[in-house]
Design a protein around this nucleic acid. Structure first.
Lengths: 206, 206, 206, 206
DNA sequence: AAGTAATCGAGACGGTACGTCTAGTCTTGAA
DNA sequence: TTCAAGACTAGACGTACCGTCTCGATTACTT
């Protein structure tokens, strides 16, 4: 009587961590944030939505911030990885496009904004956000920029860290204040602040 | 302005609005934000700290966001007004210095960050923050920039609104992420994004 | 525009304790005990049933045991007060009838049984049950018995306290084990243990 | 009876029921009841204390009541068996002494009180308590009494079942309410309610 | 000797109630 | 009319157990 690969419907947890429950929680958090805003994002609501017991959430996540970080890290690595291949001005500009797009349209983009917000209210959140998201990404970004500089592709006036903030800051700020994110913004920021090789001898004034 | 007899401790209200209670609430909110962060800033705690009944707060402020807006508007107009006199690149740069200083050191600076944060969580807050703070200031800033442009002092590549965000965004973003705000940041932003008259014909590349 | 005595529907509490809420809680507890047993008697369920917030219950009652005691004391004083008038064997017997009837048929009778039960589980309950119910009633019963003795109406062999337990114990025990409570039980207990005047010279053997 | 090599610590289960686990559960239940009262007697706590998995408990006992019944039945048959030999008033009185002693001093006595209590809360418990403990014992007691009556040793006024409750009830009630259990109680109950042959023609009034 | 079956400790799971907390509404009584 | 005080409904918080389940290791009876 071969079991002919019929689907087992609900594998039922057992002794090991239930991956289905984990994903259900992450998705529920994502959905609730999108639908009801941060105010509707309670552990109770996540549990209800995910069809999961509260204890299951408390067992695996120390706070709802950590849930959001899990979702954010997974999604943003997927949707707009820091380019590692070609350290050119164009790839940096494309990265800013992708970042702006992520903030404006991806549900996980709202997560980042919510976490930056929450970090203002709780010092722990600030620390965790840095450790799990901002710092690792910034390290990659810094390296991208450094390689572009040493390749002679760009020549920013500021130190790498501040330069990145000067590029990313306007985009984040406009997302935080609900302003649109036109391509010209990233274009101008890259052109004027990074001064790429191709545009350096021809300032727009002419 | 005769001080007429020592102050009678607590004049006990009567039937007009109690100015002492109003100030006590604003100060209590300020103090609590500074001491216990936004998390410790509950209506209950403000009432306790101010020695005021909750109902008194609810009577005069529709939410604690409005309390913070009251404090923010009063203080920021005092500490770093948008310059109205000389529409030069230098005065814009000075304004950015003052803004950075406000965010980094003034207690009311924390209020702005907290309100930007809160605006991510509640749409009402976003609307109120725009209406009472961001929009009025932006109108002034836009006019400053417009006058500087038409005076030939600066020539930004972006439209006035986006250009202002490109200047302000990095400063706010670094404040939100706890990064320091060196003067070079504002210097570079003004020089590279506004292209003031004095630096226009001599791009740093030479 | 005279309000012509239309009913105000819900007087809404205010500053003072809400008597309606208090009664709703006591009745809800009573009903739940009768309908779903002690297992269904949770604070959460009482609050739900009474249409009252949990906090209101916790504000006024330190535990659900105290709710039951409130209900029990009020009801049992109403339904079967200890007789104070005539200290005769007959009135003691009638008191036992009333007690048996209370245990067997009155909803509040179930409360007493539940509290005796709960007292086995929690020492606090035992103490509170004694202080608020058993001891005061026993004091009255003891006095009734003492007056009957000194009036020559009855002559028990045991000290008053133990004698009362010998009368009451079988009734309670049968109620606890779900056995019926026939009148002959009380009759026999009074006749054989209290030896009332009228039956003393004529033992049932004849 | 050579003890052949020190005990191997924990034989690790295998295919058959683990007697060590069974005893560990019974003892853990006993200990927890004694130390933390019925409130501390949770399946989780028993499992923890016994060093046993919860599933092992649920496999062998349908509820914690059944664990207590196991312990109670074993112990009470051992400590105060219903006398089968001589159906005299004295042996009944001795049985009551033993019962009172069991309730007052034996750990298993507390179990009986706890089960009577629990039976008020759950109908299932009531049924199981009757079936496994109260009814079998009562059958033996009834037979003892019946034999004593037909031997002319005693002549109770009540039917056997009610008569037994009249004897046992006061003792249980006083145990439930924390009152002491003096020998005179059992003495008086037997003398006045069973009217043994030797005291029948000489009522104490004289 | 290998396979089958039942045991065990461990612990994750969906639930329910706990007792605490804060929000925001409402009412009283004094000034 | 204002205020302090504080009771009220509502509902989230994080914890403790409940009873069910699955896992992987450990025996003992089969064959």
């Amino acid at each position: 009587m071969p079991a002919t690969s019929s689907q087992p419907r609900r594998q039922r947890s057992g002794n090991r961590r239930d991956e289905a429950a984990r994903l259900a929680v992450l998705h529920a958090a994502d959905d609730l944030l999108a639908e009801h805003g941060f105010g509707g994002l309670t552990i109770e609501a996540i549990a209800r939505r995910a069809g999961v017991a509260k204890q299951t959430i408390y067992r695996w996540w120390p706070s709802k911030v950590e849930i959001l970080l899990d979702a954010l890290v997974e999604d943003s690595d997927k949707r707009f990885p820091v380019p590692t291949a070609e350290p050119t001005a164009a790839s940096i500009r494309d990265y800013l496009y992708a970042f702006a797009n992520f903030l404006a349209t991806d549900p996980a983009g709202k997560i980042l904004l919510a976490l930056i917000a929450e970090a203002q209210h709780h010092a722990d959140t600030a620390e965790r956000l840095h450790k799990r998201y901002l710092d690792p990404r910034r390290a990659q970004e810094r390296e991208l920029l450094a390689r572009a500089v040493s390749a002679g592709e760009v020549s920013p006036a500021l130190d790498p860290d501040t330069a990145m903030d000067a590029l990313v800051g306007p985009i984040v700020y406009r997302a935080l204040t609900g302003a649109p994110l036109p391509r010209e913004l990233a274009d101008t920021l890259v052109r004027d602040l990074l001064k790429p090789r191709s545009t350096r001898q021809q300032p727009e004034a002419g």
